[in-house]
Write a protein that binds this DNA or RNA. Structure first.
Lengths: 242, 242
DNA sequence: CGAGCCGTTGAGGGGATTCAAGCTCAGTGG
DNA sequence: CCACTGAGCTTGAATCCCCTCAACGGCTCG
């Protein structure tokens, strides 16, 4: 994990400007802050980068920091009593990670980088302090909690029910929402798909091969595909009839 | 749906006393309020009762009220694009229902009574007003959001993965947490179990019969069982070995 | 008493798993 | 340079678990 302090004590608030100019600020927790708020926080936020597979934090650990995801995809996973891991949610650009520390609770899941990832590390006390003075920030927090809840419930109804083919098509649809500007979509490893959909990696592999043959996806490199949107919709339609 | 106004305008705050004496107040959203807060809210809260199968609200509807569950079990369900319904979460005593209206958002799921249910109906503007003056209430709200999120994720990892027998055992374990004082546990209909676990009702029926033969559960009446806790734990242990 | 709902159980088929083999590719060390 | 290794992916064959289709019984209710 590489940590870059974004602030410099010798110049007046350069990071406040960096925050103000940040491409995800409007989508992020601090989108609600004004210039004064940015001045207040800038000196306490570090930028963090993580390589795929690296762990941001582990379930059960007590931490004092939360994160805003600027770039990349982070997965939340937990280990079941059977001993196998289950991926329960994904976070993308602008999402808040580890908000439970605001309640002085341990992290609920492992958080692991799926792709190269850039985050802002935010001390919990910073949010505590601002929340008292900034009602808009409190509202932003609640919006994010509700969004996480709806994501989780949508995962349950879309990705955890029905035949394997439909679940995997739905996963592609969800991953497409995190596509880069040029249409590149991150494709998880086969065993990661398994952990997301409760499938064996062999089944995931068979289906991905099938989708390639059908032209629903096109492999760009080992970890990225281009998705034929209409073909995907059609395949899902067929799946849902009957 | 029967609505009983709990307040009376001719006597001074009788409902404030009713709220203060309420058995679930300490577990409920307003557990954080002092006497002044209770005085403020009492005139605006109605008591509601619902019979099993009755709908509290529907997904997508815009409402201006949320609910605290005083007694009974409420399920959250949604209809997938395939047309079948999926139960994604359960609420029990003290849980908050429909909190998304505080964000001016439509209800995310259908909310349906599983058992006879008693709720307090709380206008959203009431919470808005109090939240500004009562930081503890804001915190209570966040705690409830986080709890709902963790419930949903736990549902995903426990009830939506693994073989049918394990999923149903896990469901019994979860239902046991909502047991009455005398140990009576609500047993859903077979097709409700199916909607919770993504099984056919036939499979649910076969497994329930099996559990009865094995002595894990004992049928009290059509909708209630007594659960042999140790036997359940043993069965789960066996399931998780191997 | 027939109709309908809910639950149970059986028989057969299908979809996902399990077990197994072989493939590519990156990294390592002789 | 290339054999060696291990991780990840693919594909095949056999098995098994759950679904589908079906029949039947108990119960409530009109």
């Amino acid at each position: 994990m590489s940590i870059i302090p974004l602030y410099r004590v010798d110049t007046p608030h350069p990071q406040a400007q960096a925050c103000a100019a940040c491409s995800v600020r409007k989508r992020s927790l601090f989108g609600a802050l004004d210039q004064a708020g940015l001045d207040y926080i800038h000196a306490h936020i570090d930028s963090i980068q993580l390589q795929p597979g690296k762990t941001l934090f582990e379930a059960g650990a007590r931490g004092a920091v939360l994160y805003t995801l600027r770039e990349g995809i982070v997965r939340f996973e937990r280990v079941t009593e059977r001993g196998d891991r289950r991926i329960v949610r994904l976070a993308g650009r602008g999402d808040l990670i580890g908000q439970e520390v605001l309640l002085r609770r341990p992290y609920a899941d492992d958080a692991v980088a799926c792709t190269p990832v850039q985050l802002c590390r935010i001390p919990a006390h910073l949010v505590d302090g601002l929340a008292g003075q900034t009602p808009a920030l409190v509202r932003e927090l609640m919006v994010r909690w509700q969004r996480a809840l709806e994501d989780s419930e949508a995962w349950l109804s879309d990705l955890a029910a029905g035949p394997a083919r439909r679940r995997l098509l739905k996963l592609l649809q969800k991953l497409a929402a995190h596509a880069a500007a040029d249409g590149r979509v991150w494709l998880p490893q086969r065993d990661e798909m398994g952990a997301m959909l409760d499938l064996t990696f062999e089944t995931a592999s068979r289906l991905i091969s099938q989708f390639k043959r059908e032209g629903v996806i096109e492999l760009l490199d080992l970890r990225h595909v281009r998705i034929d949107g209409p073909a995907l919709q059609r395949a899902l339609r067929v799946e849902d009839e009957r």
